[in-house]
Simulated scan of single mutants.
Amino acid sequence: MNSYMIKKLNLLYKRYNYLIKKLSDYKIYNNHNVLRNLSTEYSRLSNIIKPFIKWNKLQSNLINTKSLLKEKDKDIYLMVLEDIKNINFKQKKLEKILYKLLLPKNKKDNRNCFIEIKAGSGGNEAAIFVKNISRMYIRYAESKKWKVEIMHIHYNEHGNGFKEIILKIIGIGVYGKLKFESGGHRVQRVPETESQGRVHTSTCIVAVMPELSKTEMPEINIQDLKIDTFRSSGAGGQHVNTTDSAIRITHIPTKIVVECQDERSQHKNKSKALAVLAARINAIKIEKKNKDNALKKKKLLGTGDRSDRNRTYNFIQKRVTDHRINLTIYKLNEIMNGNLDLLINPMIYQKNNRL
Score class of each variant (00 low, 15 high):
residue 194 E to M: 04
residue 181 E to W: 09
residue 102 L to M: 14
residue 103 L to P: 01
residue 167 L to V: 06
residue 155 Y to P: 10
residue 123 G to I: 11
residue 195 S to K: 10
residue 120 G to S: 07
residue 145 K to W: 11
residue 136 M to S: 10
residue 104 P to Y: 05
residue 177 K to H: 14
residue 99 Y to G: 06
residue 151 M to E: 13
residue 154 H to M: 06
residue 178 L to P: 08
residue 195 S to N: 04
residue 195 S to E: 09
residue 103 L to E: 10
residue 144 K to F: 12
residue 196 Q to N: 13
residue 182 S to E: 04
residue 164 E to H: 04
residue 157 E to M: 00
residue 106 N to C: 07
residue 122 G to S: 02
residue 179 K to E: 13
residue 169 I to E: 03
residue 156 N to S: 15
residue 117 I to N: 04
residue 113 C to G: 12
residue 133 I to E: 01
residue 152 H to G: 01
residue 113 C to T: 12
residue 156 N to M: 06
residue 151 M to W: 05
residue 113 C to Y: 13
residue 120 G to Q: 07
residue 189 R to A: 14
residue 124 N to K: 06
residue 182 S to Q: 02
residue 199 V to P: 08
residue 137 Y to H: 06
residue 125 E to V: 05
residue 140 Y to V: 09
residue 119 A to G: 05
residue 107 K to I: 14
residue 183 G to Q: 05
residue 173 G to W: 05
residue 133 I to A: 04
residue 170 I to Y: 06
residue 115 I to F: 06
residue 174 V to K: 00
residue 157 E to I: 07
residue 198 R to M: 12
residue 151 M to K: 11
residue 161 G to D: 09
residue 164 E to N: 06
residue 176 G to T: 08
residue 120 G to F: 12
residue 187 V to E: 09
residue 195 S to R: 02
residue 138 I to R: 00
residue 129 F to I: 08
residue 97 I to K: 11
residue 118 K to Q: 14
residue 170 I to R: 01
residue 167 L to W: 10
residue 193 T to M: 01
residue 111 R to N: 15
residue 127 A to T: 15
residue 167 L to Q: 04
residue 160 N to Y: 12
residue 185 H to D: 04
residue 162 F to R: 00
residue 165 I to V: 15
residue 174 V to S: 09
residue 191 P to L: 06
residue 156 N to D: 15
residue 131 K to V: 03
residue 153 I to S: 03
residue 138 I to G: 01
residue 118 K to I: 12
residue 141 A to I: 05
residue 111 R to S: 15
residue 143 S to H: 11
residue 137 Y to A: 00
residue 103 L to M: 14
residue 103 L to W: 05
residue 130 V to E: 05
residue 133 I to L: 15
residue 152 H to S: 15
residue 175 Y to F: 15
residue 149 E to D: 15
residue 115 I to W: 06
residue 185 H to Q: 03
residue 194 E to L: 02
residue 193 T to R: 02
residue 147 K to Q: 13
residue 144 K to W: 13
residue 144 K to Q: 15
residue 139 R to T: 04
